[in-house]
Write a protein that binds this DNA or RNA. Structure first.
Lengths: 340, 340
DNA sequence: ATTGCTATTGCTCGCGCGAGCAAAAATTGC
DNA sequence: GCAATTTTTGCTCGCGCGAGCAATAGCAAT
């Protein structure tokens, strides 16, 4: 212990110290801090008082080492430009913490970095890894799984067909069909689909579902464009390029976006750079229902994911000792507002 | 080890296994994974190969336990409605990871919860705690410090005068004076200051600086209102209430906001609920320069914090063994756009 | 008081690694 | 070639806790 310097650091008060203070054995002290342990109310109280006085808290590293359960989960995120990430993080961190899970946050820079990020997590012997990002394609997953280092690998808010992962997501297919039906029912006939990065097979699901469904049921082939990241600023640039100079006849009547991040970027540019009105000149739909979608500025028609339910399900999966197929799709809800 | 079930989990490959495989001792294996250790290139290579084959990675829990350095820092955040938090998290997590620090993310629900959050962190024996939030008033800090559990307690992006904490922040006083001067120079005469929660002494700095400076130099006393959280939606409601029904004479000519989260919420309501134009009817300034401030929709005049520099300084502080006064104020930059 | 049972407590051993020293090997100077 | 280094390797011991068992205390029934 090399910290005589910092008056705010007391360092190693161990269970032995508390045991001496309380007049019990070390093991009784540790038992006092485990909820499943058998201990008499009297000893518990003695230990509590002694621990309080000395400022003792159990060392979770040692506990984890001895018990082979870390109560730690790694959260891998790679896309901080998307405001929906903030919402997901808030929900997940709150619910995980409530259930006693600590969170190792790993900012994954890009696809090449994903391997390192997983290695990082494995060195802390996390009980599970949760992926909230786009860059984790099957190749990366396979590498991680092949290294056989995780008890559970959970893909949150994204579908994955990899049999060794657990995917907890909204039913994209159902959702996009609902959106397509709504769009058509409101009289729109020439949609433009704005998609995200093409790297991830899973995220193509929304685009493909929409395009296929539209072609099949409503005749024409929707135009599509894509953005290299779920970044509003980037999306704005792409949309401006795609729509600039078009006239009433060639302009799509609605922009169907893969998510709100793209829809928001598109909205800004359509209004302020192209000078068009939403929804009169061109309508817009999104996906996710981020907080600003409801705000006075965007009033975005979008699709809400039941994030809380999904997070609750996630902690249930984490708590389970089994390893069966936990994949689950949730039904979301179309939020109709003024943008479409 | 109870995981014959999950084929993706290999579990306990230890340094001993690698040692046997490589024909060296366990300690040589561990040394191969420490950068300061003395080891011959030949053994290093042997170990590398054996480790690769067995899929071994050192257990950081054990390493941390034995060395009394966890290489873990706790990041405490409590305000996920503020988009600037996402930016700060991205910057911090990226730079911390690059320097070899792992991050324990703790979502602190409210002030009462801050104590638990700190306890959480201390049980993992983090090397430092970084606070990125508003709810940590001096009372909470004192509790944490009194428990003497942390080597370093760093307040990021907020000034704190507590002598036992390390505050890395932008120079709010200088910044607000610059804003006041700019606002006055552009001809605005009746500013309304929109402030955040009053709980935190530190955040009053911006408001007080602006108000005092304005009164002193430009004569009149600025009106002020405040919001209970840095939440755009909330800010919108407050602003609507405060401004509804006013006319040209009673309307402030500029809204000076404590940060962009408030400014964004205010902008939406002013345009879409009150039907006023920015900046013609009322101008707006923010603080932070979040990504959307630059976007086509807001074009917000705001004050950029040098987050990267601040984060780089933070890792330098973390790396230092000393415990002197590391407090540091950074100079930001006024970003002039169309909103004011 | 004695037996038989359960609730509680204490203990041995091990989790995987690092500090720090002692032994062995490699390198240098002459 | 030999002694004096210097580098590298192996080792003892301990970090703080938990699993699992052995010992003890507590208690009711006989």
């Amino acid at each position: 212990m090399a910290d005589g310097k910092n008056p705010a650091f007391a360092g190693n008060i161990t269970a032995d110290d508390v045991a001496a203070e309380a007049g019990v054995s070390r093991w009784t002290v540790n038992r006092a801090f485990r909820k499943d342990a058998s201990i008499s109310p009297k000893s518990l109280e003695k230990v509590r008082i002694a621990a309080e006085r000395l400022g003792y808290v159990p060392d979770l590293r040692a506990s984890s080492l001895a018990s082979d359960r870390s109560n730690l989960v790694a959260l891998l995120i790679d896309d901080f430009a998307n405001p929906h990430k903030l919402v997901m993080m808030e929900r997940l961190t709150r619910i995980l913490r409530r259930e006693g899970w600590d969170i190792l946050l790993v900012n994954t820079l890009d696809r090449a970095d994903a391997g390192h990020a997983l290695l990082n997590a494995s060195q802390r012997r996390v009980d599970a890894v949760i992926l909230i990002g786009i860059q984790f394609d099957d190749e990366v997953l396979d590498t991680a799984l092949h290294a056989r280092r995780f008890r559970k690998l959970i893909i949150f808010a994204r579908t994955s067909r990899n049999p060794n992962t657990i995917s907890i997501a909204v039913d994209d297919v159902h959702a996009m069909k609902e959106i397509a039906n709504y769009v058509h029912a409101r009289g729109f006939r020439s949609p433009l689909f704005l998609a995200g990065p093409r790297t991830s097979s899973a995220h193509l699901l929304r685009k493909e579902t929409f395009v296929d469904y539209w072609r099949l049921h409503f005749g024409n082939e929707p135009e599509t464009i894509s953005v290299t990241a779920y970044d509003p600023a980037l999306a704005g640039g792409i949309v401006e390029n795609a729509l600039a100079g078009r006239n009433k006849a060639t302009l799509p009547d609605i922009l169907v976006c893969e998510n709100d991040a793209l829809a928001i970027g598109a909205t800004d540019v359509i209004r302020h750079r192209l000078g068009l009105r939403i929804p009169q000149d061109i309508a817009i739909t999104g996906f996710d229902d981020v907080p600003q979608a409801e705000g006075a500025n965007y009033r975005l028609t979008t699709y809400r994911q039941p994030l809380t339910d999904m997070a609750e399900y996630l902690v249930k999966v984490l708590g389970s000792e089994e390893n069966r197929d936990f994949d689950k799709l949730f039904q979301g809800r179309l939020m109709i507002r003024e943008s479409a």
